[in-house]
Amino acid sequence: MAHTNDIILKTMTQLIAFILLGFSIYLFFAGHNAPGGGFIGGLMTAAAIILMYITYGYEKIEQILPINFTTMFVAGLGIATLAGIGSIVLGHPFLSQTFEYYNLPIMGETELATALIFDLGVYLGVVGVTMTIILTIATDSDAKEDEEKAEA
């Protein structure tokens, strides 16, 4: 296999990955009033991580981001379920939500909604599932590579 020079991709990824992560956080907080929310924010985060994996290879990013994505999506499902059960504990139907306006120090008057907790669960779940699926497929090639080596 010829050694290819991908310095443009590597230089661009350093910048674009952070723009993508920032955009994903924006989408996450823009949810439930504007287009956005946990699902698409999680998808953007996964896209940024996948871009880093594509550019720098599996082993390097595995060292930089030692996150167990399986645990992450189980935690996300747990948070989403607990956010639903919490409303039962307070005497309302499952998954009912509320919001309130608060004066925060820097941001001024801000709307804080309990739907954000559920969204956080969705966010972690989407990142975890997407990365688990893609990394499982991407790292599945060991058996095939061994066969090719044996044939060669």
């Binding site: 296999m1 050694h3 290819t4 994996y53 594509i54 290879g57 599996y58 082993e59 390097k60 893609i134 990394l135 991407a138 790292t139 090639s141 060991d142 590579e145």
Partner: peptide, 15 residues
């Protein structure tokens, strides 16, 4: 583009 050029999308081993 990476698949067309290298045949893999996520490299397992550093070259």
């Amino acid at each position: 583009a990476k698949f067309l050029e290298k045949g893999v999308i996520i490299d397992r081993h550093n070259h």
